[in-house]
Deep mutational scan, measured.
Amino acid sequence: MSIQHFRVALIPFFAAFCLPVFAHPETLVKVKDAEDQLGARVGYIELDLNSGKILESFRPEERFPMMSTFKVLLCGAVLSRVDAGQEQLGRRIHYSQNDLVEYSPVTEKHLTDGMTVRELCSAAITMSDNTAANLLLTTIGGPKELTAFLHNMGDHVTRLDRWEPELNEAIPNDERDTTMPAAMATTLRKLLTGELLTLASRQQLIDWMEADKVAGPLLRSALPAGWFIADKSGAGERGSRGIIAALGPDGKPSRIVVIYTTGSQATMDERNRQIAEIGASLIKHW
């Protein structure tokens, strides 16, 4: 067993022997301040990774656009098919120029040779490549099948209805392509620590998230040296922004954090800054 596999296998073990965790309302004060600064709703939840206990939450059962955070769930569904012998990570998928959609920095470079399922998941999570996500959605049967996968996990809230990039439209009061912070946090925890996926697939999923290259201005910008984070960000229309993450000190994750916002007129930089400040408060009061 590799060191990384050992780390993920012992996530519940280490967490069980940690000192009790206590909620700190100071972080919620910052979440509410972010709402004021952005002029928009902000949803927040913080779960203990081992027990699933909610440590703090704000608007945990209000719907927010998922945006690209759905790509972690998508690759979880792909990995479940791999575990069941219905898919192979090494299978190569070929596609054409007509398949390319807006923001496809990886797939646009491989029109000639195609990409493997493993490479597509890596591109979808680490670079948020939209064509990679659409190609992977095709392998599982489309958005409705991802929703069905989530329902089978016990998540009857999260739903995907459309493809990239239309799913980022974020129309107010439109339930399409949305989740709730509580539902997303619980589902992410199941994917990373539950028995739904094999140990190898859980490790692969967290490795992809740990290698995320496009979430630097968010929670990662607030992390002290030595902290662990595996995350996936999302951005959408109407001032929408979000991030889902597993993080913790001492090089291992111990909490799940989900943050979503929508309806702001603020710039992307300002949305990023507010999420980073929430992260800084979380870490300060850990």
Rank of each mutant, 00 (worst) to 15 (best):
L146M: 00
S240N: 00
L196V: 09
D250T: 03
D207S: 08
S128D: 06
E164Y: 13
H151S: 10
F58W: 15
G43A: 08
G141R: 07
G234P: 03
T179D: 15
M127I: 06
S51D: 09
V101C: 09
L74N: 08
A215M: 02
I171T: 13
F58S: 11
G239S: 06
G226Y: 12
A77T: 09
Q203A: 08
L28C: 07
E277S: 13
D155A: 12
V157R: 07
R159Q: 12
R91S: 03
S233K: 01
M180C: 00
L73K: 11
I54H: 06
A183N: 13
R189F: 12
D269Q: 05
L282D: 15
L55E: 01
E277N: 10
N134H: 08
L199H: 01
G141F: 15
L223N: 09
G76W: 07
E119T: 11
F70T: 05
T107Q: 02
E145N: 00
E175Y: 00
K109D: 13
R41A: 12
E195S: 12
S281G: 08
M115W: 00
G43S: 06
A280N: 00
A123K: 00
L100R: 14
V31K: 02
R220F: 05
D83I: 01
S80K: 00
A211V: 05
G76Q: 01
M184F: 05
K32C: 03
A246P: 12
R59H: 01
P165D: 03
T126G: 04
T178K: 14
H110L: 14
T262G: 09
L136Q: 03
I125N: 15
Q97P: 03
G90W: 14
L136E: 07
V101M: 00
A225D: 12
I229Y: 04
D231M: 15
I140C: 13
D250G: 04
G248E: 09
A245N: 06
I244Y: 05
V214T: 07
L191A: 04
H285R: 04
L282N: 08
H151T: 07
W227D: 01
T198C: 10
D155E: 15
L188Y: 00
V106E: 03
P165W: 04
P60S: 07
D231L: 08
F58K: 15
M180Q: 15
L192Y: 05
N152M: 13
Q265R: 13
E210I: 11
N134W: 06
E108S: 11
V117D: 05
S281W: 15
S240Y: 14
S128A: 02
R41I: 13
R176E: 00
A276T: 04
W163M: 04
L223W: 01
D212G: 13
L28S: 05
N152A: 07
G216C: 02
G248R: 03
P25E: 12
T69Q: 02
E108D: 13
L49I: 15
Q203G: 12
